[in-house]
Amino acid sequence: MSKMKDSKKKFTFTTEKFLILIIVLYCIVVTCVNPGFFSAATLFDMIKSSAGSMVVAMGLLLVIITGGIDVSFTAVAISSGYIATTIMMNTGINNIFFGFAIAIIIGIVLGLINAVLIHVTKMEPFIITLATQSIFHGCLTTFVGTKNIGSVDIPTAITKFGGARLFTMTDEYGNKTGLSIYILIVIAVVALTWWIMYKTMLGRSVFALGCSAESARRAGFNSWKTHLFVYAYIGMLGAIYGMLSIGGVNACNPVSMVGTELTIIAAVIIGGAKVTGGSGSILGTLLGVFIMYLFNQTLVFLGFSSSWNNLFLGVVLIVSIVITSYQERRKNRRLFIFTE
């Protein structure tokens, strides 16, 4: 009986399918042009460089599902990362877990500041977080410092962490490649986010708030708690993002990262999260970030320089949002909701 039902189910055109289609087609084209593309080295490289974005995208996903947005997470990332690194250096505690703990505490505090401002003033989260982005980053660079911590000075724990691999292999030319332990963190964060989203009441409240704030209130959800949680969560993940990217480049430049937030938001939106709230999926988000890095790292195989990256990303982004928004518009028009 249930089988019959399944076969009847119409094929629906979801964002995930669209993205997978693009990825598959793209990979086929690239492999045809340049078979060298398909190598473990490329994949490992991509995993390591995209790890931070994947992690913070999970937080962004939750924020967007509630109907909010956060553009301050890059400032949170570099602030917490830089302060944590500095404290590690000054105290001499050369332990990566200590560094993470400090960064995460700072990240959560900054996230909570966002949450309070957004919940209390009830103003556009975009504008609020734009302001806090400047404030967080301004505070860091004014009061903590703007000195770049180079690979010589950086605590060895971070260097070790950034270079750590699950396994290493040597290819035919003798180059060593390996899978960075970053993937463990990505898996852990994705699993945690999945668990929160689908297995906890808190996660349900995130969806409920984004679906309809009024219905959520009637059901007895506490929007204050949900706001505190999602912004603190992205603060925490922002801090991890900061530590991962510091480890990745084995240096810590306090004026880096800020300015890249819109690209990561674009990736999450490509993944199908709706900025009006209520829907978004982990798989879609991961695919969105993946596409971004796929273009970033493999356009060279097609003979394009990396400067074409944004062009491809922009086209994919616009096509995917036009498809979803236009469907939504037609549905709304039938219900006499006249959105522009």
């Binding site: 689908y198 297995k199 906890t200 009441m201 808190l202 996660g203 349900r204 969806f207 409920a208 679906c211 309809s212 009024e214 219905s215 959520a216 009637r218 059901a219 007895g220 959800f221 209520g278 829907s279």
Partner: peptide
């Protein structure tokens, strides 16, 4: 006041679970 993106089962059960101050769902 239903949640449009959620399933039938969830819509029926959610409010009860909120009332019981549950932290997790399964």
């Amino acid at each position: 006041s239903l949640f449009d993106n959620m399933t039938v089962a969830e819509n029926i059960a959610l409010n009860k679970m909120i009332k019981e101050k549950r932290k997790l769902t399964n």
